[in-house]
């Protein structure tokens, strides 16, 4: 969706849904994802439609992703850091999943 005018000079690596990617040091995560060719970063909580960063300035909340296990981070306000683990968000978070897991683990 976005194209780099120059090669990355100071690369930092991160993963998005398990795929290794690179960004320029100090770059915002949302921009890095778009420049890496990612089409959408989440699915909407109501209809499940694909969504991608829209405003890049912290206003629209379309860029919400899970970063290092923390949900709903605004990717346009977050700089990429070496080794960051980024995951897309699929629809509404399953709030009961945690309890189901716990139950399953009980004998």
């Amino acid at each position: 969706m976005l194209k780099r005018l120059r090669e990355i000079e100071e690369p930092v690596s991160f993963t998005f849904d398990g795929v290794q990617m690179q960004a320029q040091r100090g770059e915002m995560l949302a921009t890095a994802l778009l420049a890496a060719g990612i089409g959408h970063v989440r699915r909407s909580v109501v209809s499940g439609a694909p969504r991608a960063p829209y405003c890049l300035m912290g206003v629209c909340f379309e860029c919400l992703v899970t970063v290092d296990g923390l949900q709903n981070r605004q990717a346009c306000l977050l700089e990429v850091e070496e080794g960051m683990v980024v995951e897309s968000q699929r629809g509404a978070p399953d709030v009961l999943a945690h309890f189901r897991d716990e139950k399953r683990q009980q004998p």
């Binding site: 921009t31 089409g39 829209y54 890049l56 300035m57």
Partner: peptide, 21 residues
């Protein structure tokens, strides 16, 4: 996806030197 605000494109240009496809 693929729709951004003009401001977003300008922010990407200023901060990362990237342009829309």
């Amino acid at each position: 996806p693929g729709v951004l605000t003009a401001g977003a494109a300008q922010i990407a240009l200023k901060s990362s030197g990237v342009v829309p496809a």
